[in-house]
Amino acid sequence: MSAKTILIIDDDIDLVEILRITLEAEGFRVVDAQSGERGIAMAQAENPDLILLDVMMSQVDEGFQTAYALRQDERTMETPILMLTAVTDQTGFEFDPSRDKDFLPVDEFLEKPVSPRQLVDLVRKHMPTKI
């Protein structure tokens, strides 16, 4: 069975590298994109099993916009999205997946700084068992 693919969409290349090393050590295949737009293209091309998506990239709400676009595309409609967020610190938004699920179709929020252990646990939790 081939390795599960994870797409990381984040413009912080250092963080992408850290996440890549952590996830590759766990046996995942990692692809990345540094913007929402390229992320969407990459998702369509690579058909990842799970997406890690940053909220704030070059635009404050780029992650939200990307999440909406991914959910509207039938190829990525069902792909689990874990959203990396530091928005709490910035705008006073407090995310609660159980409350905001309808508002924003992502599966989990992961607050930065990302702990590798927590990241791996959450990835495993949301990774689909069947393709």
Partner: peptide, 17 residues
């Protein structure tokens, strides 16, 4: 925020791995 948080993740990942 961003550099400090990424640095923490890097060190944590190094120790973890």
């Amino acid at each position: 925020k961003s550099p400090v948080s990424t640095a923490q993740s890097a060190v944590e990942a190094a120790l973890e791995l």
